[in-house]
Amino acid sequence: MRKWRLIINEGNVYWNMAVDEAMLLLKDKGEIPNTLRLFVFNPSAVTIGYFQRVSDAVNLDFLSKNRIPFTRRITGGGSVYHDVNGEVTYSVVASISDVATDVLKSYEIICKGLVYAIEKFGLKAQFVPINDVVVNGKKISGSAQSRKKVALLQHGTLMYNTDLITLASTLKAPKEKLASHGVKSILERVTTLSRELGRIVSKEETIEALIEGFSKALNAEFEREELTEKEVKLAEELVEKYKSKEWIFKR
């Protein structure tokens, strides 16, 4: 077993994305240990992929009417609705050499942590390359990875009780996208732990399962810690970027 740091916290969408980027930058300089961070978005929020256009990825009208904050991630991939009462986000920040040099392989290794976590609930989960985890053919988790010279950041979701109606109203999926999934709407292609189990799963249970799942997938022994002063300071600087129109509407 290798020692990893475990951080559990919560924050708004700008702060959360700033912390992830700060950890990646400091890991790349060798200043922090390999880290698993588990967190929620409070209030509920939306993040969009680095290469997406805002107008293609989200329903701006719905977001502004419902005052749902959103920002652009540094990672690629698609738009995500982070429900404060229904989704836990994980971030793995590690040396590339401690996971895998091959990008696809590293997605799989880290996503195994989600598969094992879901199996703790007695459900069968499957990693679907590039970056999805599905249960009974429905997406329950999506991940995205960004790399620097020697460090990687992979973050992603695990929906335990997300309000899927709000999710469907928030995100825009092109009709073509849905067609390729062979289903008619977002509701038919995504699911949550609670929905699959027929009972309400709690955030605490989900976090517990994620810790165990990632411990197995990464062969890691976690030690609970807090962010360093340096991480907090860097995140405080980065937060302004995530709030800025220039960054959010970059594409």
Binding site: F51, Q52, D56
Partner: peptide, 15 residues
């Protein structure tokens, strides 16, 4: 030209 979508590019600046 703007190339956009829900994909991944490494290194990211390359796009």
């Amino acid at each position: 030209i703007v190339i956009s979508g829900d994909f991944f590019v490494y290194p990211q600046e390359a796009l």
